[in-house]
Structures are given as structure tokens and as C-alpha cells.
Design a protein around this nucleic acid. Structure first.
Lengths: 234, 234
DNA sequence: TACTTCTGACATCAAGTGCTGTCAAAATCC
DNA sequence: GGATTTTGACAGCACTTGATGTCAGAAGTA
């Protein structure tokens, strides 16, 4: 494609010669096939990044893994970085959804919500280590574009934490800026523990990590005057 | 050097032909000059990594920045990764020393120790953003060798935290493994906040970060039954 | 001055990268 | 069955990388 800006699958009704509509093929519309290939390339990318690292995710490697040729790589993504970002985004969405669901299922019991959220995170890692590796490790050190996406997504997580904690807090106890810092700090703790866990092959018992993170959350909560309906340790 | 293992500057007394000792040059011994060049290359590497990212730290770029030629790069470091690791190690040592000193200066006052340690970290970042960038951001996503070094150094920090906290804790309150998790979690919070701060150009007021991290530390301390001679918030 | 060591600029190498273009063959449609 | 779109294989380009080799001349020594 020399100069035709075929980004999204919007213009599927482009005539190839004069009036022939580039219609169905293999029983599926062109846009549909394109989307299938997009998915193949994306999943191939996720697999390679998660197992061999982001540096191994070259055009040729990803294309081969996807069972397609390089041509379709560029049909699906503008360039290599776009794939990396899309791969990261997909996993981040998965985990955020996963955590949010787990938390919401315990609504009205703050203590259980914290526990469920943390558990959901570490469960995801245990269930899909490769994908988690992409989310927590392989997304680092790529470039400014990815860094931006990373910052945005981590803010989404921080907002989730903050949104959950906010209604429980005594009003005006702290400047909002400091509350944000604390939310980010807690997030950082979980992220870091997740990274360590993945790097060390998840040998450490999951509960130790969940409990350890719990204590950090609960300590901060207590300090901020949140009533979690649980007072003593353990 | 085809096969002569000239790693460290130990064998400075090697005779070139039969009995001539490869002695002084430019008024300095060979080993001394070699060390000077080592320092030049290392500092050049630190500068480039910190300002342009680790990917920009190519042989040619670093050599040019050092004012030397590629030949001396390999005289100083076995390969590119060795430089990256050495650069990271140097900054990690600097910061650890810096933090440790600040903490120790407040000995006997736990609260002040926590505060001083955190302050020292963020002060270092503010004073040397490029170096901090290398320590906190550019060291990521390089490879297994660097990851190993990173893990080792972060453990040193975690050990510092744990070592300081240990004597204050009621005995046998928690399994040691969980205590380690908590120490690492706190470290993760600080690391993550540092990363965010650097990435966003250090616009946020330093005190917000120090205070936010403080609360996390103090919350956890309270929860573990540590008496910090301070009870109420703020 | 004669001699040696040290130094820096540069050439070279193979390998790998992202990315584009070509083209025949296969799959599909009418 | 014939026309045509879609597909896959692959060559090719320009470039960069890490790493090594060459070699004349500078800096120093005696």
C-alpha cells in the first residue's frame, strides 16, 4: 500500500477497477478476514513477546508465528511498535477487567474487596504467566510510545484503587494530590511484587504475596481512618 | 587482542619484547591510563544512557562521547551489556550509599529515619535526573544479565529496609517470608513513584511524594505494631 | 636522533533490522 | 471454465549493529 491510508476497516466498499465491489471471499467479507488476520498477528505477537521477550518480536518472527507473511503484518499494524503497544493494551484490558470484576463481586465488604482484587491479579499471573510477563516486564524499555501507553494504563489502575477507596475515607482528611500518590504507591507495590514473582518463576507461595500486599493496603487504610470492620492483625 | 585475556589491570608488568617493562607514558603508568579510560567510557555511557536511553548507547556513540575510539571500549568492557551493567551498578551504589547515610544520620529516631531515607532518594533524583533515569528506567528491558543485576541490587535495598525494621518489630509477629514481601512491597512503592516522577519531568512537588511514601511506610509500621513515637496522622 | 610504544581514524565483516516490491499460484466468484 | 482477486513466498534495499583488524603517525624514551 503505497499511499492509501487504510487504517481501520471502514472503507470496505472500495471498488477495485471500476464498479466491482471487493466483496466476500472464503465466505467472509474482506473486513472480516482482515480482522481475523489482525487477531492472528496480535496473538502471535503476544505469544512471542511473552515467551521470548519483546526484542524477539521481529517482523519475521511474528509473521511466521502467525502463519502469515510480512505483508499482512503491515496490513494489521503500522509498524512494530504499534504491535507492541496493541499487545500490551490487550493484556492490560484483560487484567483490569479481571480485577474489577473480582472486586465488584465483593461489593459492600471493603476488606473482601481488597483481598479479591489482589488475589485476582496474582491468579491471573499464575494462570497466564506469558501474558503477565508481557504486561509486567516485557513492556519496559521499549520506547516513548509504549511508555505513554504504560503511564495511561497504570493511571487507570490507580484510578480504580482511588475510586474504590474514596467513598470510604473521612472527608478532607488529606490533599487529593497526596491521596493519588498513596494510591500509586500501593499500585507500585503490587506491580513490583508481581514483577519479582514472575521473574523468579512464581516459586513463592501465592498467599504470601497476597497477604503481604494486603498488609500494605490495610496499613494505609487504617492510617487514613478507614473502617474495614477488622481491627487486629491477621 | 586476539586471545590475551587482559581483563583487569592486574598484569601491568608484562614485558613487550624480552625484558622491557611496558612502563610509564604521558607521565602515568599503563594501568593508570587504562583506568582513566575506563572511567571515561563509563561516564560517557552513563551520560548517554541517562539522556538518550540505553538503546542510544551504541559502541560508536559511547566511544565518541568518551572522546576515545572503539578500540578502547573493548579494552574497558567485554561488550556492550557489560557497560550497561557497570553503569547501572555505579548509580545503584551511589544511591544506596546516599540513602544509607541519610538514614544512619537519624539513628535512634525511627520516624526520622524513614523520612530521611525517602527524602534522600527523591533528593538524589532531583539533583541528578539523568543518573536517576538510568537507575530507575533505562535499566529495564535490556536483557537477562541486567535483570539479574537489577534483582540483586533491589534485594540490597530490600535488605536495608528489612534490617532497619527488624529490631523494632515485636518478635515472631509474622513469618519472615511475609516480612520480606512487605519490605519488597514498600520498596516497590518507592521505586514506582520514583519512576513516575522521573517520567513526568519531576513536576509534582517533592514533598507530596515523600509524604505519600511516608504514609505507606507508617501505615505498615503501625499495623505491625511498631512504636514510632507518633500516633496520630500528620 | 633512533627506536619503541601507544594512539586514533578508519576499513571491514557478517548479521540482522524494518520495510517495500514483485510475481506466480491458489482460491474464489460468476 | 474463465476471469480476477487474494494470497504466500521471497528477493531486495538501505541501514545499523557489534565486533575486529589494519596501519600510519603521534608521543614518549633512551
Amino acid at each position: 500500500m503505497p499511499s492509501s491510508g487504510s487504517k481501520s476497516g471502514a472503507n470496505a466498499r472500495v471498488s477495485t477497477r471500476d464498479n466491482r465491489v471487493s466483496g466476500r471471499y472464503a465466505g467472509k467479507a474482506a473486513a472480516c478476514r482482515r480482522q481475523e488476520r489482525y487477531g492472528k498477528v496480535l496473538e502471535a505477537g503476544i505469544r512471542i513477546i511473552g515467551t521470548q521477550g519483546h526484542e524477539a518480536a521481529t517482523l519475521r518472527a511474528v509473521s511466521r508465528e502467525a502463519g502469515l507473511t510480512e505483508r499482512y503484518f503491515y496490513e494489521a499494524f503500522e509498524n512494530r511498535e504499534a504491535l507492541l503497544i496493541a499487545a500490551y493494551q490487550k493484556i492490560a484490558d484483560e487484567v483490569l477487567l479481571c480485577v474489577r470484576r473480582a472486586v465488584m463481586a465483593q461489593a459492600a465488604d471493603p476488606l473482601a474487596m481488597v483481598q479479591a482484587g489482589l488475589q485476582a491479579n496474582f491468579d491471573y499471573i499464575a494462570a497466564a504467566p506469558d501474558r503477565a510477563r508481557l504486561l509486567y516486564i516485557e513492556c519496559l524499555g521499549i520506547g516513548p510510545g509504549m511508555d505513554r501507553s504504560l503511564g495511561l494504563n497504570l493511571n487507570r489502575f490507580a484510578d480504580l484503587i482511588l475510586g474504590l477507596a474514596q467513598p470510604l475515607l473521612p472527608r478532607d482528611i488529606r490533599p487529593p494530590a497526596e491521596l493519588r500518590v498513596m494510591a500509586r504507591g500501593v499500585l507500585g507495590a503490587v506491580v513490583y511484587l508481581s514483577q519479582q514473582w514472575i521473574r523468579s518463576g512464581m516459586r513463592q507461595p501465592r498467599d504470601e504475596l497476597v497477604n503481604g500486599s494486603m498488609e500494605i493496603c490495610l496499613g494505609l487504610a487504617q492510617r487514613l481512618g478507614v473502617d474495614l470492620a477488622e481491627t487486629g492483625p491477621v
